[in-house]
């Protein structure tokens, strides 16, 4: 269990009356989103299509990553009015993104009452050294990670959900696969390490020793591990679920495809039935064109390199 003493009046003692904003309820929502698809949406109409297709949550943002990549410029938190419109349009949880280190944007989104904040490399970082101290907030945070060390650093700052960064807006799954394999691979190695080796692992990963020891003991991350970045087809979703992701974020992959509603439903069904090739075949058939993809080596900006 992550040490959440900063938010508890009596460390270790169970809450007596109703208590909100605890790490347990933050991580609890992430647990409830497992096995589901979280879809990027830029309008209330998109949000309705996502909910109709079976999304477990929507991510409200101004431009999907593929457009941020194309249009350039500084990408910031979305207009609260636009997020409010999306909140009104759906009954499922609404998430929104803030720039890395931009705690004032996070304060605004908390005041707005979003259900989760993504401190995201898809937006232009606001701080080149510090991520947000997420323990100061009652709203839960999800953060991206390329490897286990980065995941554990974000958890030590209070993130209640980790997602792979992948390479957003490319429709290319290769980076998400690299990140998931790296995180899961190092977790497996740590689980087999002896207690002396864990000190070296903590140094090697630049991660808090306590969290490294917890991974060693449990074999799991202390919070759910989701996949993001480059998911464009039902097969992509099934691939990352089989590699150990517990849910899937789809950014540009739905609304940059030829038939967004059909694609969205198919990715939802593939995420549920990720181990059943017969169902995967059925839902992968007749979807129209997926979003256009990009080669990673041709990219001018690699979003996954943002954050540390």
């Amino acid at each position: 269990m992550v040490d959440d003493t900063p938010r508890q009046a009596k460390p270790g003692a169970p809450a007596q009356g109703p208590e909100t904003g605890t790490f347990t309820v933050k991580r609890g929502l992430a647990e409830m989103l497992k096995g589901g698809v979280i879809m990027d949406v830029v309008t209330p109409e998109h949000a309705r299509i996502a909910e109709d297709a079976g999304a477990v949550a929507v991510m409200a943002l101004e431009r999907v990553p593929a457009d941020i990549r194309k249009q350039g410029g500084v990408a910031r938190m979305s207009d609260p009015e636009m997020i409010e419109g999306i909140k009104d349009a759906v009954t499922i949880p609404v998430m929104a993104k803030v720039r890395i280190g931009h705690f004032a944007e996070a304060q605004i989104l908390e005041a707005l009452g979003v259900d989760y904040i993504d401190e995201s490399e898809v937006l232009t970082p606001a701080d080149e050294v510090h991520h947000i101290d997420k323990w100061l907030f009652a709203v839960p945070f999800v953060c991206g990670a390329n490897d286990l060390g980065e995941a554990l650093r974000r958890i030590s700052e209070g993130a209640a959900m980790i997602r792979s960064k992948g390479e957003a807006g490319t429709g290319n799954i290769v980076e998400a696969v690299r990140h998931l394999r790296s995180i899961r691979g190092d977790m497996a190695k740590i689980t087999g390490a002896d207690s002396a080796e864990l000190f070296e692992w903590a140094k090697h990963l630049r991660a808090p020793l306590g969290l490294v020891q917890e991974v060693g003991r449990t074999g799991c991350l202390p919070v759910p591990l989701f996949c993001a970045g480059g998911v464009a087809t039902p097969a992509d979703a099934a691939l990352v679920m089989q590699l150990g992701a517990e849910s899937v974020f789809v950014g540009s992959g739905i609304f940059k495809s030829e038939e967004p509603s059909t694609m969205a439903k198919a990715i939802v069904e593939a995420t549920t039935n990720f181990g059943d090739p017969d169902i995967l075949l059925k839902v992968s058939t007749g979807l129209g064109h997926a979003m256009p993809g990009l080669e990673i080596e041709d990219l001018q900006t690699k979003l996954a390199e943002r954050g540390w």
């Binding site: 169970p14 809450a15 007596q16 009356g17 109703p18 208590e19 909100t20 904003g21 605890t22 347990t24 309820v25 609890g28 929502l29 949880p93 908390e110 009452g113 979003v114 259900d115 989760y116 009652a138 709203v139 839960p140």
Partner: peptide
């Protein structure tokens, strides 16, 4: 919404022992 999510101790008929911690 999520900001109203909470934990609380519960007395449940038929459950013996200390209060049950509901999330």
């Amino acid at each position: 919404g999520q900001l109203q999510s909470f934990e609380a101790d519960l007395d449940i008929d038929g459950v013996k022992g200390p209060p049950y911690h509901g999330i």
